[in-house]
Amino acid sequence: LRLEVKLGQGCFGEVWMGTWNGTTRVAIKTLKPGTMSPEAFLQEAQVMKKLRHEKLVQLYAVVSEEPIYIVTEYMSKGSLLDFLKGETGKYLRLPQLVDMAAQIASGMAYVERMNYVHRDLRAANILVGENLVCKVADFGLARLIEDNEYTARQGAKFPIKWTAPEAALYGRFTIKSDVWSFGILLTELTTKGRVPYPGMVNREVLDQVERGYRMPCPPECPESLHDLMCQCWRKEPEERPTFEYLQAFL
Rank of each mutant, 00 (worst) to 15 (best):
Y116V: 15
E210R: 08
V57P: 05
E44K: 01
E236F: 10
T163L: 01
W180S: 00
G22K: 14
N115S: 14
K55V: 07
V5G: 15
K50W: 05
M75I: 06
Q231P: 05
V209G: 03
W233M: 06
G13L: 02
L51Q: 03
W180D: 01
M215D: 04
V111F: 09
M229A: 06
H226I: 05
E210G: 06
M215T: 06
A152L: 04
G86M: 06
R153P: 10
R234H: 13
A61V: 04
L186G: 05
W16V: 15
G13I: 00
A101D: 02
V195C: 13
L250Y: 13
P165I: 14
K77T: 11
W233F: 05
V98S: 11
M108Y: 06
M75W: 00
Y150F: 01
L31T: 09
P198G: 08
K50G: 07
A137I: 00
F83H: 10
V63Y: 09
L144V: 10
V47D: 03
V15N: 01
F41G: 04
D99I: 14
A109D: 15
D120F: 00
L185A: 07
F139L: 02
Q9I: 04
E236V: 12
D99V: 15
V71N: 03
A164V: 00
C11K: 03
A105Y: 01
G78Y: 04
S79A: 06
G129L: 07
V63L: 07
P198A: 10
L121S: 04
F158E: 03
V133C: 09
E239M: 13
G10S: 00
S177V: 04
P216V: 08
N21G: 12
G78D: 06
D178T: 00
R194F: 08
P218S: 08
L97V: 09
S76D: 13
L84R: 03
V47R: 07
T88Y: 13
Y69E: 08
G78A: 07
D178E: 14
A156M: 06
K176A: 14
K157Y: 02
T30D: 07
L92F: 12
P165R: 10
W20L: 12
T30H: 12
C221L: 11
P196H: 00
K77V: 10
M215K: 05
D82G: 09
I126Y: 00
C221M: 07
E65L: 14
K77Y: 12
Q154G: 07
F249D: 09
R153I: 05
Q9L: 04
S76Y: 12
E14G: 03
G140L: 00
E188G: 02
V133N: 08
M100V: 09
P241C: 07
L59M: 05
E188S: 02
G18Q: 05
V63P: 04
R234S: 13
R2T: 02
Y69L: 15
E244N: 13
Q9A: 11
K85D: 10
L56T: 15
M48H: 07
E66S: 15
D99G: 14
Q247C: 10
N115I: 06
Y116T: 12
K176F: 13
E65A: 09
E54V: 11
Q43L: 07
G155A: 04
K29Q: 02
R25V: 11
K157N: 05
P196C: 04
E4P: 15
A105Q: 01
R25G: 11
